[in-house]
């Protein structure tokens, strides 16, 4: 593949023609915020966090869906871009119910991480607090729409990698939702192979393993009585 030369943040660099700008930036060790992008899946340019400035254009470009080109002059972290990134994250936090303190994904969530890294420490917009359900019909996994950021990683991994295409979207705008099958309970989906790929790629606490969600931890105190009875009365009930 022919090599192209471009300028990134005032430094001359080279990349492979045909590669996406985002992959080059990653190779260069420039940390780009992303949410809908995941290496191995097709790119869709939806979260708008990886947008960059290109000299000579008033428009901004999502690096994940912009191929590198000879002579490009790219800026990745201008004040304007950083500001937009914070605002987009604020919009995401305001959209659904992202209450980290009671989320299974707390501490391992990509949305939370991006907020921290990009300096988003408060939300200036109205929380929309939509009234969204959970789908706990699947024997192994749980879907909580309240945590979903509509990145469609689950849709893409199921379609492109597993080949089952269980997931898709319904509705539009802020009323969009991921659905299983023809909008049926996940557990009723005949096409789900229970592989769990969607759960592993989901950036937030929207898709989780059953048994690991908040309130699912059950403590068992019975052992205390069993040990004490054994020690005091030398009766060990192994039944």
């Amino acid at each position: 593949m022919p090599v192209v030369t471009l300028t990134v943040n005032d430094e001359l660099v080279s990349g492979q023609s045909g590669q996406s700008l985002l992959s080059l930036l990653k190779e260069l060790g420039i940390e780009m915020p992303t949410l809908c992008h995941l290496e191995g899946l097709s790119d869709r340019g939806g979260c708008r966090l990886c947008m960059v400035e290109l000299q000579g254009s008033k428009r901004l470009f999502a690096a994940c869906v912009t191929p590198v080109q000879e002579g490009m002059v790219v800026y990745t972290h201008t004040e304007r871009l950083n500001n937009y990134r914070r605002m987009i994250l604020e919009l995401l936090f305001a959209e659904r119910n992202h209450v980290c303190a009671v989320c299974v994904q707390n501490g391992h969530c990509e949305l939370q991480t991006q907020a921290a890294k990009n300096g988003m420490d408060s939300v200036r917009y109205d929380y929309l607090v939509p009234d969204l359900p959970m789908d706990a019909s699947h024997e192994r996994y749980v879907l909580d729409h309240n945590r979903c950021i509509l990145c469609t990683r689950c849709v893409r991994v199921c379609d492109e990698i597993e080949g089952a295409h269980v997931w898709d979207l319904m509705g539009r705008g802020v009323n969009s939702r991921v659905i299983a099958g023809l909008n049926q309970p996940w557990g009723d989906s005949d096409s789900c192979t229970k592989c769990g790929k969607c759960v592993q790629v989901c950036p937030t606490g929207a898709l989780t393993l059953r048994g690991s969600t908040v309130a699912e931890m059950e403590k068992q105190h019975d052992f205390l009585k069993w040990i004490l009875t054994g020690r005091e009365k030398k009766q060990w009930d192994y039944s």
């Binding site: 939806g46 708008r48 605002m87 305001a94 539009r172 802020v174």
Partner: peptide, 9 residues
């Protein structure tokens, strides 16, 4: 359509 965050929210 809901695809991108700035327009959707």
């Amino acid at each position: 359509c809901g695809k991108c965050v700035p327009c959707r929210v």
